[in-house]
Design a binder for these strands. Structure first.
Lengths: 200, 200
DNA sequence: AAAAAAATTGAACCTTGAGTCAAATTTAAT
DNA sequence: ATTAAATTTGACTCAAGGTTCAATTTTTTT
């Protein structure tokens, strides 16, 4: 409840933004575990010691929370994709690195890929789908590069991608921090399985 | 609306069971596409030319539909798993075959794996989770056999399984019969990627 | 064609949970 | 300490959608 006391006159906005972010992250985590519709505004507030009414001070409505949590996840994934590719490595190496970081993102940060896209309506839904597509395209592009540079075997690049992106999404369903398997172990295992699955 | 006219006095039950099954399959398909909570009883009825009230002649409530569609999917998967394993083949070959059939099941029959398990309550939820576990265990067992007979490389067998089962579940999200890729293509592609990913 | 059983419906009921708002409380600034 | 702004709340409204049921229509049986 009590945070580090802010002194300078202008962290107002920051303070607000930070708490808003907390709301969204916390909600996203609940959405991931229980699903969007099985999580009430009351539930979301409770975790943070707030009434559901208080949430509306930070967000316009529930859908906005879902929307923003999607944005957040895809934002992080964009960051990972932006990592500069070392010249030396093959496209496969590059892809493996990206995938490893995706796994880390999902297992170690609070961020989670969400799938209740259908609960978003109109513009928001299509924006999120565009973001997902953009990521899929970027990854597919790398796969194609790999097929060109000889590090990745042929075949429908999109199918290659769907396969291992599926593994990633499914991770969200079963992975639980408290399990015996650590995020690093998963990252290692998964990136090897990815590599073997598509290498030349 | 009009079906083949039944004659014998005893297809009553059959008739009823058949229509009930239709209701469930149709609903399952909608759940898969739009999600459980984004599909109203009205929606479900509409597809079949029924009022939502009529549905209650066939099912006790909405949750029962979700429950039964899960059962149906896992029932089919159990069937696939029951296929006798030819002595000759390695565990990896066997696994590949099973996986291929899983993919076919999801792309070609109306059956779909559903994920709204959290919308089931109490007993039902745990029964479904048990069924899923049972399948996962059976598959994991095959992987372990493969590691023993030398056809599958080492590593945490459960992680091997989660990876490609993820691909399977994700399939449900993006695959659409009307797309350019056929179910067979996917089956071929996926089973190869599975094999390569874990072979010794 | 009448009677019985099966199937379907329209109209209501009821619960849940999202969203609103004026008032109360807490925190920061003077 | 006082004031003002920021934050939170309790009580309420409202709509959506699941569920019920008596009445109606359709189908089957005799």
């Amino acid at each position: 409840m009590v945070e580090l006391a802010p002194k300078s006159p202008f962290d107002r906005e920051k303070q607000f933004a930070a708490k808003r972010r907390k709301v969204i992250l916390s909600a996203a985590s609940a959405f991931r575990r229980r699903g969007y519709h099985n999580t009430s505004m009351r539930d979301i507030g409770e975790v943070l010691g707030l009434t559901k009414a208080a949430l509306y001070y930070y967000v316009k409505n529930k859908e906005e929370i879902l929307f923003e949590s999607h944005l957040m996840a895809y934002g992080e994934m964009d960051e990972i994709l932006k990592m500069s590719q070392t010249e030396a490595q093959s496209a496969l190496d590059y892809l493996e690195l990206i995938f490893r970081n995706f796994v880390k993102l999902l297992t170690q940060s609070g961020v989670s890929i969400l799938s209740d896209v259908d609960s978003l309506s109109g513009e928001r839904q299509s924006e999120i789908l565009k973001r997902r597509q953009r990521i899929e395209r970027a990854v597919t592009k790398i796969v194609k590069q790999g097929q060109a540079d000889g590090s990745i075997r042929g075949g429908d690049a999109r199918l290659h991608v769907f396969f291992f992106m599926g593994a990633l999404n499914w991770l969200n369903v079963w992975y639980d921090n408290k399990g015996r398997v650590t995020g690093d172990e998963i990252a290692n295992h998964f990136s090897l399985q990815l590599r073997r699955g598509i290498e030349e």
